[in-house]
Design a protein around this nucleic acid. Structure first.
Length: 482
RNA sequence: GGCGCCAUGGUGCAACGGUUAGCACGGCAGUCUUUCAAGCUGCAAAUCCGGGUUCGAUUCCCGGUGGCGCUACCA
């Protein structure tokens, strides 16, 4: 059997959004599973809305998601001859005819039809033009319309939706070539899919209704159409199609918010597809192995950010440490917290720090915000933490004791540190938690952090002592600012 | 409006004629504990409505309702 050839064909009218990314992912999974070819094609024939700089934005999203393509990107804007050739073929064979109606006229007629309660379908007036009339108008600007059969229906088998049928009289004579000689989507996709020998068209269900039109073109030129597989749409929480109104929809925004590409792929894959059982956490290799068109759902799916966050935290804490280290490094670099020695002689320390932090992290950004004190000496005391753990008046005299005891600890290791802190508490007759909680604020500025003695061991004696000193110094002003 | 598609807890998915309707996220409670997560235990929560077909319907058929999509010289 011939290797499958699939494509993802975004139009650069915006960034790579979640819906497009999911479509790209399905195509990619299918290609990788079958050993097929994944092609990237940019549909930029709409000169008004397509922006060259947005092509780069789309590619950036693809790269972040690690959806590597095997061919392309091809640009429709560079393939105009092919579309015109196909259009000419349709005209020569009588499958398409020139239409001299102007967009303004059409717009007007549509409005009138609507007002009269009639379907706003093209009335086919130019289709009835005689050969003489057409000859007389030669040279006048015109579009080319496809002559849709008046009788019968289009029937096709969708790999997801099953048998589909649409009556031809529901389909108007659609434009294939605009009067500016640029192709419409319907013509361009067919020409491209034919030229690129696409075997499976996996795309959003919003194209389900376009399929009969495209099938008509395949039939007109006597070509075998690809297999169509339409995938359900992704909706926002309000159940309308996911769009900018719902907040972040470009995939790069999710990157910036601290999501891991692999977690994002896993989450995305489960939007409209399931392996057929209850498995949810599937690394990409497993996704590739288990993906199947027949298990794609026909129901639109609502994008659930909480679930995405859950996937991310799962990946953050359960993936092999080496796999997430580069991501944390990237995050720290973006925030200006990165230090080169962490890639060199202090690599082990860096790995330990990340490993200590990650059980509580949900997003990569947590490492530079909530976990900042692990990577920088400059951090603030979270007011909430101050309020929660620094209220006790005894701290003013106990914290210096903790500082002094810790300064004497030898060797500097988890257990000896713990003995020192608990010792102070015992002698003072207070709960160890009082000192532990206060020290946590001193060391991290946070009310929530990894286990204290592990944190201390990691930060090192010098830093721990000086941070305790720093808190002792600011205790009076912190108490006042309440 | 017309046409098409869809319909299982709040959300994502299972169950593809026979289960006490399952799993996960989220929620709630308990447990653990050095804060907070995680983990563990438990709880609440669903087959849109009405007709058929069948010994038996979440599942098949029809109707209704609802949602979404399409209805461009956009893609």
């Amino acid at each position: 059997m011939e290797k499958p050839r699939v494509r993802f064909a975004p139009s650069p009218t915006g960034y790579l959004h979640v819906g497009g990314a999911r479509t790209a992912l399905f195509n990619w999974l299918f290609a990788r599973q079958t050993g097929g070819v994944f092609i990237l094609r940019i549909e930029d024939t709409d000169v008004d809305r397509s922006k060259p700089e947005l092509v780069e934005a789309v590619l950036e999203g693809m790269r972040w998601l690690e959806l590597t393509w095997d061919e392309g990107p091809y640009f429709q804007s560079q393939r105009l001859e092919s579309y015109r050739a196909l259009a000419e073929r349709l005209r020569a064979s009588g499958h398409a005819y020139p239409c001299y109606c102007t967009p303004d006229e059409l717009e007007l007629r549509r409005k009138e039809a609507e007002k009269a309660g009639k379907p706003p379908k093209y009335d086919g007036r130019c289709r009835r033009l005689s050969a003489a009339e057409v000859a007389a108008r030669a040279g006048q600007p015109h579009a080319l319309r496809f002559a849709v059969p008046e009788q019968g229906e289009s029937v096709f088998e969708d790999a997801v939706y099953g048998r589909m049928s649409v009556k031809y009289d529901e389909i108007e004579d659609f434009v294939v070539l605009r009067s500016d000689r640029l192709p419409t989507y319907q013509l361009a996709v067919v020409a491209d899919d034919l030229d690129m020998r696409i075997t499976h068209v996996i795309r959003g269900a919003d194209h389900l209704i376009n399929t009969p039109k495209q099938l008509l073109i395949y039939q007109a030129v006597g070509a075998t159409p690809p297999i169509f597989a339409h995938v359900p749409l992704i909706l926002g929480p309000d159940r309308t199609r996911l769009s900018k109104r719902h907040g972040a929809t470009s995939v790069t925004a999710y990157r910036d918010e601290g999501f891991l590409p692999e977690a994002f792929r896993n989450f995305l894959a489960l939007l409209g597809w399931s392996p057929g059982d209850d498995t949810e956490l599937m690394p990409t290799e497993e996704l590739i192995r288990r993906f199947s068109l027949s298990n794609v759902s026909r129901t639109n799916a609502v994008f659930d950010r909480d679930k995405l966050v859950w996937f991310n935290s799962e990946y953050l804490r359960n993936q092999p440490l080496e796999k997430i280290l580069p991501h944390v490094e990237g995050e720290l670099m973006r925030r200006g917290l990165w230090r080169d020695e962490w890639a060199g002689e202090q690599r082990d320390w860096f790995a330990r720090a990340v490993d200590t932090l990650r059980p509580r992290a949900r997003l990569l950004t947590d490492f530079s915000t909530w976990g900042r004190a692990f990577f920088s000496d400059e951090f603030e005391y979270d007011p909430e933490a101050v309020k929660k753990f620094l209220k006790d008046g005894k701290l003013g005299e106990l914290l210096p004791q903790v500082r002094d005891e810790l300064a004497k600890v030898e060797p500097w290791a988890h257990d000896s540190i713990e003995r020192a802190v608990r010792g102070v508490a015992e002698r003072a007759g207070v709960k160890a938690a009082l000192l532990i909680n206060a020290s946590r604020v001193a060391l991290t500025g946070q009310a929530v952090a990894p286990p204290l003695f592990t944190t201390m061991e990691l930060l090192g004696q010098t830093r721990v002592v000086s941070r305790l000193q720093r808190l002792v110094n600011s205790l009076p002003s912190l108490a006042m600012s309440d």
